[in-house]
Design a protein around this nucleic acid. Sequence first.
DNA 1: TTGTAGGCGTTATCAG
DNA 2: CTGATAACGCCTACAA
Lengths: 336, 336
Amino acid sequence: MRSSGQPTINDVARLAGVSKKTVSRVINDSPLLHAETRRRVEAVIRELGYVPNPQARALALRRNFLIGLVHDNPNAQTVMNVQQGMLDGLRGTEFELVVRPIDRAAPTMLDDLRHVLERQRLFGVLLMPPISEDDAIARLCEALGCRYVRMGSALLDTPARMVASNDRVAVAEAAAHLLASGHRRIGFIGGPAGFRSAHERRAGFEAALAAAGLALGEAQVAAGDYSFAGGQAAAARLLDADPQPTAIFACNDEMAAGALHAARARGLAVPDDLSIIGFDDSAIAAHLWPPLTTVRWPSRTMAAAAARKLIEDEATVPTHFPSALIPRGSVAPPRC
Amino acid sequence: MRSSGQPTINDVARLAGVSKKTVSRVINDSPLLHAETRRRVEAVIRELGYVPNPQARALALRRNFLIGLVHDNPNAQTVMNVQQGMLDGLRGTEFELVVRPIDRAAPTMLDDLRHVLERQRLFGVLLMPPISEDDAIARLCEALGCRYVRMGSALLDTPARMVASNDRVAVAEAAAHLLASGHRRIGFIGGPAGFRSAHERRAGFEAALAAAGLALGEAQVAAGDYSFAGGQAAAARLLDADPQPTAIFACNDEMAAGALHAARARGLAVPDDLSIIGFDDSAIAAHLWPPLTTVRWPSRTMAAAAARKLIEDEATVPTHFPSALIPRGSVAPPRC
DNA sequence: TTGTAGGCGTTATCAG
DNA sequence: CTGATAACGCCTACAA
């Protein structure tokens, strides 16, 4: 009967002299099988080069073999890192990666997402920050029977549904690094209001200052939006203060790059006149001049773990991923 | 019969008092339909909020509603731009974007790709450079009945299967810009051997020099690999020459950033001691200091057009996309 | 432990 | 123009 194209479960069944269902059991690792039968079927499968058809499986199981990346992240580099991490985690499996950016601000966002999840019946999705912080989205996934794992700067969900860094500790370490270099007037470029990551990072920064007996005055804080332009503007505001800060911590590398730009624009040398620390260790950090001291956010590793959590049942995949300070060339002791 | 979940084609057929096939014809815009019947069915569809199930369609049509991005591109930013462009082109359709990086160097590359295309039955794929230049891959897609569009620096295929820039012309323009600024000793950091884009860009560069009565000596050329480190090393080699070049053109921004690094490392000021031009206008270009003069490669626009070519039949989508010189701060007249 | 019948939701065939 | 009927390839339930 089979003329062209790939072999189907029927071909395997016929050649192995068993029923379709038995082949199906072999494919799905059913325990109710004679070892002998299994061996025979597996031999035919190998011989034929048979691979189950994902479309048919998707229809019967009402579930696709697709893992989605749902995000609304302004940082292209971070998104790429996460994609690569997910692909690391998916390598060797039958799953494919579907990319699905959404617009957090759109009023129809939840409905759009519902439509995708309902129609494509994704096996699972990885929620990147900042939308990973949105409980409504997590509840939607759950209601639609779509597995999810959230990626975040702190534990926002059960470990099975979470991969988390500890930004508070990491940023405190970065601030301590500046303090140890002798800085006392340190500006802080924050992330957008409502971002958990922004909250955690600021908390860590303040904690480190407090431990050194310093307070974070309002004049030392400028709000940013995780974008280059935002960092530029925030740094400009910070550098207008008198006395000027001798160091700036920016809540991501993109903004740190903007701060570097702003410093250069007013003739300040980095790190001699101004030290800068960023966060993420995205590709840009090492490529700036001077190379940017930053905090490494292990996005790729975390994403790989998240992908494995989505497709495996075992709880052997870690949940916590430490960030680490990466000292490079953008920090020096203050001049004055 | 229908208890839970979404309405199916059966529900629509029953309520509209027609057969499944008629509903199917409405969905697929069959011309053989009474306008009256169509209207009635469409009303029921709207009322029920019925949406065809993609898994069932995929099974019946032997073709998934997935568009793939197949790439092996070292530049994360470029890949992101292309993804965003594809999503632009796919917006409002039922298609989803699947990301599929492959390893050009792996001996099993073609087999891996064949497996994905056979199993997932992608509707179509966008081939990014440099693998878009590989005819074997294009032939594989064709043999498997998978539509494809290639993205490249020159016309490599029929217009229906191509979106192309004209790098030769664009690079000639960049070289002319340096010449017009007074530069005569211009170093060239090339792309990897075997890349069509590298070939085109070098040809454009040489043409512009020739038009000014200059030749490109071997000492002025350094091979790069489109990476930051490669650009750094190539620039170092170029700057070892005596007399030193007063300007460098790098075949992409990543390498230009590396060249900037190398210049800084040996105390050269950019653009005063050394002018630099890159290629791509990726995000990093505007974020460097000084902002990098570069050639804008319209990756996002091209990718959007490619996506539309993949899903539409009409030949109304353009094939050629001009690149343009973006003057910023990394070029100045030579000092000496 | 294995097989049979029926369903998942859609499209293709071919007769009316 | 329209509608039974049979694929598409796999899985679940139930029976043997």
